[in-house]
Nucleic acid binder design. Sequence first.
DNA 1: TTTGAATACCTTGTATCACAAAGTACCAAA
DNA 2: TTTGGTACTTTGTGATACAAGGTATTCAAA
Lengths: 100, 100
Amino acid sequence: MRKGVLEYCILSILSRKEAYASSIIDELKAANMIVVEGTLYPLLIRQKNQGLLSYRWEESTQGPPRKYYVITDKGREVLSEMDAAWQEMVSTIQTLRNHD
Amino acid sequence: MRKGVLEYCILSILSRKEAYASSIIDELKAANMIVVEGTLYPLLIRQKNQGLLSYRWEESTQGPPRKYYVITDKGREVLSEMDAAWQEMVSTIQTLRNHD
DNA sequence: TTTGAATACCTTGTATCACAAAGTACCAAA
DNA sequence: TTTGGTACTTTGTGATACAAGGTATTCAAA
């Protein structure tokens, strides 16, 4: 029953292109999903420690350097498992919800 | 970001007919959703304390008396809010997932 | 030159929640 | 009267999301 929707969203965003924390927060916000820094930073570190992400530093002209996260092959594997798990969850809820 | 999928499932099940904890677990299991007693009992108590559920005792021929939970009017209201929130979550994920 | 605003990263403390495990209690059949 | 099945409850632990605060860099304005 452990959900991990947020992890799913992060991997999903990073599967399209690399990004740094603040930009991920913006993208989530644009999708109506509120996440704060205190949630996201530890989560990125966790996913990196699990081998799902790597990162590189990049200078910015607008302030301090940015930590760009990149999804790994293992991250893509896990993402596709999460796709399946999410689809199953959606259809489970649908079953429960329309059961008569 | 706190979702409460499990709360949603419980209200959904109880919106069809009253039930006691063990039968709810069986129904969830039938829908491929594993939930254990130590999760469900506190959750039912929480929802009761929030006024979403009430309960009554009923004797059983098969063992100890059962605590049948019943959804309240407020519970039905919250359930319909959860319906909307769930639909929004599903479409948010879809947006993130298919964004290009 | 220093100050402040903007950007970005990180940490700490707290509350909640799902689970494992153990405990309590009732009943019927062997 | 003991055993097995059913049912409810509690306790302890780990994970996680959040609020709040802290550190550090850059640039522009005072």
